[in-house]
């Protein structure tokens, strides 16, 4: 579903991502872990086609992000680390806008909005402007907007930040449901306990380089993910 091959991106003279390769198959929840400034967001943005990269290749569903960016964007959803959305729209208008752009048929958009907004208890607030939303409500709206067009691949940057425990639990359930239905999820997180319980695969990045990747059991061995991560960071 997502193939990253030898991705390199530099800012000025500094290599933010250095020769990074990752393969994410359908049905997998792939966690991406690293310290602040390790290159997680740069990698994620490059995968979404919103950041140019220097070398390497990224393919989504068999298509190159460089050569066919629009086709790639049609099958993926991106949730950024800070859910800045159009403050001047109501939540419903924003979701409708996303549905229009992704050409979601009317009946399906109503059904999906009803379902996801109900699940995240946002239905009553959809008529209010996004500017009046709290951070958590914006995060919920971002999640709904990602799910509403039924993407094959969901890429999320710190998706649990700002969500209350109930919403976090529901999101985890939806992530599993999405992957069980043949989709894939690639997400970054600092919450190692969540990654440990939720992810099928995990990759650890340090200073732009991939230092460990594999199934959760392969990466952590007999230790906890936190121990492994701290050991690798100090090493």
């Amino acid at each position: 579903m997502l193939r990253i091959e030898h991705l390199t991106k530099t800012y000025g003279g500094k290599r933010a991502v250095d020769d990074l390769s990752l393969h994410i198959e359908p049905g997998q929840i792939y966690g991406f872990i690293g310290h602040n400034g390790a290159g997680k967001t740069t990698t994620i943005k490059a995968c979404c086609g919103i950041l140019k990269f220097d070398s390497g290749e990224i393919c989504i569903d068999g298509r190159s992000v460089k050569a066919e960016p629009l086709e790639c964007k049609r099958v993926l959803a991106y949730i950024p680390d800070n859910p800045d959305m159009y403050d001047f729209m109501t939540g419903a208008a924003y979701l409708n806008f996303i549905c229009d752009v992704f050409a979601v048929p009317q009946a399906e958009r109503r059904e999906r909005i009803r379902r996801y907004a109900g699940l995240f208890e946002l239905t009553d607030d959809l008529g209010s402007p996004v500017s009046s939303y709290s951070h958590g409500m914006k995060q919920k709206l971002a999640v709904i907007s990602a799910l509403v067009h039924a993407p094959k691949l969901i890429i999320m940057d710190e998706p649990f930040v700002g969500l209350d425990p109930v919403a976090s639990h529901k999101l985890k359930g939806l992530m599993r449901e999405h992957c069980d239905a043949g989709g894939a999820i690639f997400f970054s997180t600092h919450v190692l306990e969540v990654a440990e319980k939720l992810c099928d695969m995990v990759a650890i990045i340090k200073s732009g380089r991939l230092i460990r990747a594999g199934t959760m059991d392969e990466v952590r061995g007999d230790d906890s993910l936190e121990d492994v991560f701290l050991e690798l960071e100090e090493g």
Binding site: G91, A92, A117, T123, D124, D125, G127, S128, S132
Partner: peptide, 11 residues
């Protein structure tokens, strides 16, 4: 804030 009720018909 406009606490307008959400109407599905507007979608």
């Amino acid at each position: 804030a406009r606490r307008a009720a959400f109407r599905e018909g507007r979608l």
